[in-house]
Design a protein around this nucleic acid. Structure first.
Length: 297
DNA sequence: CAAGGCCGCCGATATGGCTT
DNA sequence: AAGCCATATCGGCGGCCTTG
């Protein structure tokens, strides 16, 4: 397995149609990085973050930050593959709720997705926007596949919301939603999937507000994020930046409307400790094991 | 059915205020 | 002055939908 074939796999979205296909790629990637990296760089500010540096065939590119507390090794990933499948098959069982299995849910998905992201980081600079697009689309699809696997009806698609002026429909607002959870063809919840929140979190709050106002419903809106860190620095001094905006999150939560669930794989420390944040933000296992079922009951 | 519109993708880069 | 940190901005790309 060389870098070129890793990149060819990662850029071919057609190949990622099942959870197994994501795992297949991940295994290939973990195998590749075991012996083919130029270096593994330790982040200078939060030392559990790592950056992989490719060799000449990857023009010595340096990847996005990888959280080594979450990223599984080749051996660990491989040996847990069957277990991950079993957990999803019976997500509501007592055993799936064990701390160890909760961590596996988060780590396994994180590892698959970061394998894709890090592989795409090997693309030349003029393809960076392609990489962003592919990475985001594949993450959306991965989360949909996982939600489907536990037995929930979810699709992506457009929802046209009619806007009335003086009682007459004047036009429609078209929204593309990542996750539309339905029961008997009735929309029970709307979800957003993003690899990071950044300046895009505001829109999720506003979408909830306006959707419920225009449809005169109280439809839950939730969000699933991979992480909220990004690389900073240059020339041997690499670190990470948090990209989550706590002030915006708290402001919208208190003064507009709270979301009905916000989930991270790589959760930031302040989301566990800070008032308001810690009441609204959790790790992804909580969504799959508990919260999503409340939407469909 | 081709072309263009629309919507959403996200990390590099820029900015501005604060600290050393 | 220089460095650092948090936040704001930028903009090419993918794909579905609408239009003609």
């Amino acid at each position: 397995m060389n870098l070129k074939s890793v990149i060819n796999m990662a850029t071919n979205k057609d190949k990622f149609q099942t959870i197994e296909a994501y795992a297949d790629f991940c295994l290939k990637y973990l195998e590749f990085i075991k012996t083919n990296l130029q270096a593994v760089i330790v982040s200078m500010n939060e030392n559990h973050y790592r950056f992989f540096q490719y060799k000449e065939d990857g023009t010595y590119n340096i990847t996005r930050p990888i959280n080594s507390n979450l990223m599984l090794s080749l051996e660990s990933f491989d040996s847990n593959r069957k277990q991950f499948t079993n957990i999803l098959k019976d997500i509501r069982s007592i055993s799936s709720k064990s701390g160890k299995n909760r961590k596996l849910i988060n780590d396994y998905i994180y590892t698959c997705q970061q394998s894709i992201g890090a592989a795409l980081d090997a693309l030349p600079a003029n393809k960076s926007n392609t990489a962003r697009k592919i990475n985001g689309d594949l993450f959306e699809r991965f989360i949909r596949l996982i939600i489907l696997e536990v037995g929930i009806d979810v699709t992506d698609g457009n929802i046209a919301v009619p806007v009335k002026i003086n009682g007459y429909e004047a036009f429609k607002m078209n929204y593309q939603h990542d996750l539309i959870i339905k029961v008997d063809n009735v929309t029970k919840a709307i979800g957003s999937v993003k690899t990071s929140s950044k300046d895009r979190i505001d829109k999720i709050f506003i979408d909830k507000f306006l959707y419920n106002r225009l449809t005169d419903t109280n439809t839950p809106h939730f969000a699933i994020f991979l992480n909220d860190v990004q690389r900073k620095g240059k020339e041997g001094r690499y670190g990470i930046n948090a990209t989550f905006l706590p002030g915006h999150f708290k402001g919208y939560t208190i003064k507009l409307n709270p979301l009905d669930g916000v989930y991270y794989f790589d959760i930031r420390p302040n989301m566990r400790t800070e008032n308001i944040l810690k009441d609204h933000i959790k790790t992804f296992d909580n969504f799959l094991i508990q919260d999503v079922w409340n939407f469909v009951e």
